[in-house]
Simulated assay, not measured.
Amino acid sequence: MTTIGIIGSGALGSNVARALAKAGIRATISNSRGPTSLSALIEETGPTITAGTVEEAASADVVLIALRWVDLKQVLSKLPAWNNRIIIDGTNPVEFLDSQSPDANDSANPLAAYGIKAIDLGNQYSSALVQDLVPGARVVKAFNHLGVEVLAEPQASGGQRVQFYSGDDSAAKGEVRKILETAGYFPVDLGTLEVGGRLASLPFGPLAAINFIKIQ
């Protein structure tokens, strides 16, 4: 049985855990504060979701990275070798702004009203930078293009919520597709990381934040 780990228990990680729990999919979720800080979430989701350390979650066959962009290097640099395991990159290159900071009122920032700021990656796409932080892993981009508040409900309006994914390893994409399907989403393959990642990444990807429903 494929094991699943989640690194990060903010809105992204917690809502994916809720979706997995509803489908009876087992996973270990973690954060920097330790397993005891997750007791309320574990009580809510039931026995299929367990709390663990970051290292325990990172040892799973498939690991969702549900971290803020600014925390990626600090967290991922401390983890052991990935040994061809699968990383689901759920991140987006944005910075969350303090409401009192000058950036939060910067008229040149079109996202200031949403409390975020795009991080300039130059000509790079975000998953290429994530790949550099997880050497030896097979990276699949998913869970990043929707508002986190809807992720806990894979089924909506009489249909299935579309979940875009992309990657450069077909076998890894197949494993992630199985998880998405079992959770109740309708997976749509956008191709390679460079193509699909750019299409679906927040904040400026043309498919970002578009909430498609596949009607039965």
Rank of each mutant, 00 (worst) to 15 (best):
R177V: 10
A51L: 05
P47C: 05
Q163E: 15
F96L: 02
G184Q: 14
A183N: 00
L202H: 03
G115S: 11
S99K: 13
P80A: 12
A108L: 13
S77Y: 05
N105R: 04
D98A: 15
Y165T: 00
A81K: 00
T91V: 10
A209R: 11
G174R: 03
T192K: 05
P154E: 04
V176C: 08
A128R: 05
S99C: 06
I4D: 07
L190E: 09
E181K: 03
L207E: 00
V188C: 10
E153T: 04
I87M: 10
F164Y: 14
P102K: 15
K173N: 02
A171C: 09
Q216D: 13
P35N: 07
I215P: 04
Y125V: 08
S166Y: 02
S59A: 15
G191T: 01
I42M: 07
A183R: 01
I42G: 12
I49G: 11
A23H: 09
A11S: 08
F212W: 11
S201M: 15
I25L: 04
I116D: 02
A66R: 01
N211W: 12
A142H: 02
G8Y: 03
A27K: 00
N83P: 03
Q131C: 13
A112K: 09
A23W: 13
V54M: 12
G8H: 01
A108P: 06
N92Q: 12
G174L: 08
T45V: 14
S126K: 01
G191Q: 00
L12Y: 07
L146K: 05
T28E: 14
E194V: 13
P206H: 11
L199K: 01
P110C: 11
P35Q: 01
A40W: 02
Q131L: 02
I42N: 05
L79H: 04
A58R: 04
L133C: 06
I215T: 04
V75P: 14
I42C: 10
Y114E: 04
Y114F: 15
L72A: 10
S32Y: 08
L180T: 00
L67G: 07
N84S: 09
V140A: 02
S127Y: 06
S127C: 08
L111S: 05
L129F: 05
Q216P: 11
V63T: 04
I6V: 07
K214M: 08
